[in-house]
Write a protein that binds this DNA or RNA. Structure first.
Length: 383
DNA sequence: ACATTAATAT
DNA sequence: TATATTAATG
C-alpha cells in the first residue's frame, strides 16, 4: 500500500501521526484479515516498530539509506505481475485485489511523489482510470446519488466525453438493466446465490449492437479476483472468469473482451525501465525495520503461481522467495477451475519489431515446478 | 465448442 | 485515442 510513501509520511506527518495513520490502516485491513493476513501483520509490526522508535531510542530507522524509491514497480522482468498490482494507484481505484480499498488523504502527496519518478505507473493507472471512468463513485461511502448508468450522461457534457453510454436516441427501449450495477456492496454475497436474480433477461431489441458493458469498479474487482483465483490472466479463460465472477448479466464475450484489454495493457506498458540493479523491484518492501513480502505482490504472486516469482533472486538471501503457495482463498468449489496449464505463446513470428527484445534474464523459464500438475491430460472433450 | 486475435464501431 | 463489440481464425 503506502509502503513507499512511508518516508514521506514520516517526514510530513511525524511519527505520531504516522502511527496513527498506520493504525487506521490496520483497522481497514482488519476486515480482510482472512485474505490479507500478512498485510495485517505487516502493519501491526510497522506500528510497533514506530512506537518503539518513538518511545525509546530513535536508534536506527535509517535502513533505507540506500534505496529511495521503491516504486520501481515496473520492471522489465516482472511483466504482468507488478504491472497490475500497482501498489498505489489509490488515486483512482484499487483494482489490484479486492482487498485494498483504503484511501486516504495522502493522495495529493502521493501524486506528487509519483509524478516524479513514475511514468509507468501512470500508464497503469491510466487504463484503470478508464475503468473507473464508468463508475466514478465507487467507494464513496455516502453520496446517495447512486445513479443508474442508464441515463445520467445525457447532459451533453461535451467535454471529456470520452464515452457516452447510450446517449443518442437509439431505441430507448434498452432496459437499463444491470449493465452497470452500482457497487453498492462489494461483497460477493450477491454471487452466493446463483438462483437469486439470475434473470437472463432476454431483452428484446436484439438488433443493434449490444449496449456497452461498463466495467464498474466492482465489476473489475470481481474480474481481478476471479483472475487471481484462476492463476493469472494468462491461464484464465473467459468462461472461467465469468463463472467466478458470477455476475448475472455478464456474458462470455464481455469478459473475453475485457480480458483482452487487460492482457494488452498488462503485457507491455512501457518499454523502459530496466532497473536491474536495484533490488527495489523485488517484491519485498521494507516496513518498520523488517523486510517483508509486499502484500500486493504476495497476493498476486501466490495465485499467479510461481512462474515469475521464482526468478527473484534474493540479494542477500535473507528473504528467500517464499513461494508460498496459493493461499486457498475461497475457491469456488474447485470444480470450475482447472489447472492452469501454461499456454503456448503464439506470437506472430514474423514481425520485425521488438520480439526478441526481451528474453533477457537468462534464465529460467522454469515452468513447472509449481505444483504437481504433471500428467494431467485433459481428455474428454466430450464433444 | 472454446479461446485468441484482428477488425470495427463508439 | 481508448475501450467494447463483432467477426474471423486456430
Amino acid at each position: 500500500m503506502y509502503f513507499f510513501t512511508e518516508k514521506i509520511q514520516r517526514l510530513k506527518m511525524g511519527f505520531p501521526d504516522y502511527i496513527q495513520a498506520l493504525e487506521e490502516e490496520r483497522r481497514k485491513i482488519q476486515v480482510f484479515c482472512k485474505e490479507l493476513p500478512l498485510s495485517l501483520e505487516l502493519v501491526t509490526q510497522a506500528i510497533e516498530a514506530c512506537k518503539q522508535q518513538l518511545s525509546g531510542t530513535t536508534s536506527e530507522y535509517n535502513l533505507n539509506g540506500q534505496s529511495e524509491c521503491s516504486e520501481r514497480t515496473t520492471s522489465t522482468e516482472g511483466p504482468v505481475l507488478e504491472e497490475f498490482i500497482p501498489i498505489k494507484k489509490r488515486a483512482s481505484s484499487p483494482p489490484c485485489c479486492d482487498e485494498d480499498d483504503e484511501d486516504n488523504e495522502q493522495h495529493s502527496l502521493k501524486q506528487s511523489v509519483l509524478n516524479e519518478n513514475n511514468d509507468s505507473d501512470k500508464r497503469k493507472s491510466d487504463w484503470l482510470r478508464s475503468v473507473q471512468l464508468w463508475n466514478p463513485d465507487p467507494p464513496a461511502e455516502e453520496d446517495a446519488t447512486r445513479k443508474v448508468p442508464g441515463m445520467e450522461l445525457k447532459r451533453s457534457g461535451s467535454s471529456g466525453g470520452a464515452f457516452h453510454p447510450f446517449h443518442k436516441e437509439e431505441r430507448a427501449a434498452k432496459a437499463t438493466e444491470s449493465l452497470c450495477k452500482a457497487p453498492s456492496s462489494t461483497r460477493v454475497a450477491a454471487a452466493s446465490s446463483s438462483a437469486g436474480e439470475l434473470t437472463p433477461e432476454k431483452n428484446l431489441n436484439e438488433g443493434q449492437r449490444k449496449q456497452r458493458r461498463c466495467w464498474s469498479q466492482d465489476l473489475h474487482k470481481r474480474f481481478l479476483h476471479a483472475l487471481q483465483q484462476l492463476g493469472g490472466a494468462d491461464s484464465a479463460t473467459p468462461k472461467q472468469i465469468r463463472e467466478l465472477m458470477n455476475v448475472d448479466g455478464l456474458t462470455n464475450d464481455e469478459v473475453k473482451s475485457h480480458l483482452q484489454k487487460y492482457r494488452l495493457h498488462t503485457r507491455r506498458p512501457s518499454p523502459m525501465v530496466h532497473n536491474s540493479s536495484s533490488p527495489q523491484a523485488a517484491p519485498f518492501v521494507l516496513v518498520g525495520n523488517i523486510f517483508v513480502q509486499s502484500p500486493e505482490y504476495a497476493a498476486v504472486a501466490t495465485s499467479t503461481a510461481s512462474r515469475e516469482v521464482l526468478t527473484v533472486a534474493a540479494p542477500a538471501g535473507v528473504y528467500a522467495p517464499v513461494a508460498t503457495h496459493p493461499t486457498p482463498v475461497s475457491q469456488p468449489s474447485a470444480d470450475s477451475i482447472k489447472k492452469p496449464q501454461f499456454k503456448k505463446f503464439q506470437h506472430s513470428e514474423h514481425s520485425n519489431s521488438d520480439e526478441r527484445a526481451h528474453h533477457s534474464e537468462g534464465a529460467v523459464h522454469s515452468n513447472s515446478p509449481t505444483s504437481s500438475t504433471s500428467t494431467h491430460t485433459s481428455t474428454s472433450p466430450g464433444s
